[in-house]
Simulated scan of single mutants.
Amino acid sequence: MKNILAGKLENYKPLREIVFETLREAIITGQLKAGERLMEVQLAEEMGVSRTPVREAIRKLELEGFVVMIPRKGAYVADISTKDIADVFEIRAALEALAAALACERITEEELEELERLLVRVAECVEKNDLETLIQVDTQFHDVLYRASRNDRLVQIINNLREQIQRFRTTSLATPGRMRETLEEHKALVEAIAARNVELAQRLAQEHIENAENRMLEAIREEMRARQGESS
């Protein structure tokens, strides 16, 4: 935990915000696992800060759904159910469609060129089967689309939803054939936006998120069945 915090203390954000972002990153990346108890004293010692910013960070993480508070027991990393994931994706699909529609009307030529460059990088990742880099490039791709919507509040809401299920992203993209499907879906979406075809862009953006959801839930259910088989 201290390693994550190191280097971030030099920026100009308030300490409570740095601690919050550090803990959230640890949850998203799986360093803090679902069901793990968050001990204020221990976390404060590991991070070299007082308990106050840790306590504030845990409260904020609870509001965002990353942490659950259990009476008389304390704070625990939230264990997201398949129903939670489906709910998040349902909302995100609608918002992604909205972002794509707005991007059709507001995107700049420079942003379109940036999307084209990112498509080339996605293709390289697919050919190399480089999942880790693909996740990073995919994030950049969607960030450009969100920015092109010119709606800061929409971007904020989508990013919050995306972060809640970020820890399962690898599960989705790692399913057989999903990396190449993602590339083809991205290409089609960029073509629709470049053509300023609002209706098509909306449909493709929604389908892209729905496909990612289906792959993710399928992989999670398969993993659950495997665990049940091991325990029987």
Score class of each variant (00 low, 15 high):
Met1Cys: 06
Lys2Glu: 13
Ala6Val: 06
Ala6Glu: 10
Gly7Asn: 06
Gly7Tyr: 06
Leu9Arg: 14
Asn11Arg: 13
Lys13Trp: 07
Arg16Trp: 07
Glu17Trp: 09
Glu17Leu: 14
Val19Gly: 07
Val19Phe: 09
Glu21Asp: 15
Leu32Arg: 09
Met39Ser: 11
Glu40His: 13
Met47Val: 01
Val49Asn: 03
Val49Ser: 04
Arg51His: 10
Arg51Ile: 10
Thr52Asp: 15
Ala57Ile: 08
Arg59Gln: 10
Lys60Val: 04
Glu62His: 12
Leu63Gly: 00
Val67Arg: 00
Ile70Leu: 12
Ile70Ser: 01
Ile70Tyr: 03
Pro71Cys: 10
Arg72Leu: 09
Lys73Tyr: 03
Lys73Thr: 05
Lys73Glu: 06
Ala75Ser: 15
Val77His: 02
Val77Phe: 02
Val77Asn: 01
Ile80Met: 11
Ser81Asn: 06
Ser81Trp: 10
Asp84Glu: 08
Asp84Lys: 03
Ala86Gly: 00
Ala86Ile: 00
Asp87Glu: 12
Asp87Thr: 09
Ala94Gly: 01
Leu95Thr: 02
Ala103Pro: 14
Cys104Ser: 08
Thr108Val: 05
Glu109Asp: 10
Glu109Ile: 10
Glu109Leu: 11
Glu110His: 03
Leu112Phe: 08
Leu115His: 12
Glu116Ile: 01
Arg117Thr: 08
Leu119Cys: 07
Leu119Ala: 04
Val120Asn: 05
Val122Ser: 03
Cys125Gln: 09
Val126Cys: 15
Lys128Ile: 01
Leu131Trp: 04
Leu131Val: 15
Glu132Ala: 08
Thr133Trp: 03
Thr133Glu: 14
Asp138Gly: 05
Gln140Pro: 00
His142Phe: 08
Asp143Ser: 13
Asp152Gln: 05
Asp152Pro: 01
Leu154Ser: 09
Arg162Val: 02
Arg167Glu: 00
Phe168Asn: 03
Thr170Met: 07
Pro176Gln: 14
Gly177Gln: 05
Gly177Phe: 04
Met179Tyr: 08
Met179Phe: 08
Arg180Lys: 13
Arg180Ile: 12
Glu185Gln: 14
Ala192Ser: 13
Ile193Lys: 08
Ala195Arg: 14
Val198Glu: 14
Leu200Asn: 01
Leu204His: 01
Gln206Trp: 03
Gln206Thr: 06
Glu207Pro: 00
Glu210Cys: 03
Glu210Trp: 04
Arg215Asp: 14
Leu217Lys: 08
Glu223Pro: 00
Ala226Val: 06
Ser231Glu: 05
